[in-house]
């Protein structure tokens, strides 16, 4: 067997996406701390419990905790009563979110937007074929809740749920899991795209129109509208990101 072939075979059995997993854990826990979902001084679960719940190896978790310590979001105390503790940042939320947005490059944001739009568009097309009026109740409830929500963080949570419900309406577990993954990755930052009243109103209107297309069984229109929902929100984030960079 040639060396190249050997190396290639070796790569087959290499850990899957370890670096991406570390980043994903840092992002998830980091976002939760930034947003105050995890309170200042709160003790994180032990390493083995936390790694099990996150579905990563303890090695991956340790690397992620190290990165969080470096960012000052976690502190670790040794010995009896020791463990990892949350350190809430002193800066206001929007400022912290802008800092996290600055961690993304615009090509990465653009790529995520395209992927997310593709998934959401496909979900909307299938939902239009597979949905009965009664199945749309959760989506109606979410868009009403989004319209009524005043806090950007609450808006982002409901916006995320709308996407998950749309994929569930498509009767696809895979598309639903993909939507859940996007929420973990970018959901928190969407606060920034839903803060301005004008943006909030436009998002609500777009989602209502999308539900109408799904209800009418108009698959292509639903798909196009769903893609527009994603691209519209992501364009605002990218705009903000470019503002920061400039």
């Amino acid at each position: 067997m040639s060396r190249v072939e050997n190396d290639a075979r070796h790569a087959v059995f290499a850990p899957v996406d370890t670096v991406a997993r570390v980043d994903a854990v840092v992002r998830r826990l980091g976002d939760a701390i930034e947003l105050g979902l995890l309170a200042d001084g709160e003790q994180l679960p032990g390493e083995s419990e936390l790694s099990t719940r996150l579905g990563v190896s303890t090695v991956t978790l340790r690397e992620a905790l190290m990165a969080l310590r470096q960012q000052g979001l976690v502190t670790t105390r040794r010995g009896r009563g020791g463990g990892s503790f949350v350190v809430s940042p002193a800066k206001p939320l929007s400022e912290r979110l802008f800092l996290r947005l600055a961690d993304w490059s615009t090509p990465d944001l653009r790529d995520l937007a395209d992927h997310w739009a593709a998934i959401t568009g496909a979900a909307a097309r299938l939902a239009a074929q597979r949905t009965e009026p009664e199945d749309l109740a959760p989506l109606h409830r979410s868009v009403d809740a989004l319209a009524a929500a005043t806090e950007p963080a609450a808006r982002a949570r409901i916006h995320a749920r709308f996407h998950v419900e749309l994929a569930a309406a498509a009767q696809s577990a895979r598309l639903t899991r993909e939507e859940i993954r996007f929420q973990a990755e970018i959901g928190t930052l969407l606060c920034l795209a839903l803060t301005e009243e004008e943006d909030h109103t436009r998002t609500v209107t777009l989602q209502r129109t999308l539900i109408g297309a799904v209800r009418d069984g108009a698959g292509d229109r639903a798909g196009t509208l769903a893609e527009e929902c994603v691209q519209d929100a992501m364009a605002r984030l990218i705009g903000l990101r470019l503002g920061i960079a400039g």
């Binding site: 569930a168 009767q171 696809s172 577990a173 639903t176 859940i180």
Partner: peptide, 10 residues
């Protein structure tokens, strides 16, 4: 239905 509350399974 896709159970996105508990298992993410159909």
């Amino acid at each position: 239905y896709v159970d996105y509350l508990c298992s993410d399974e159909y």
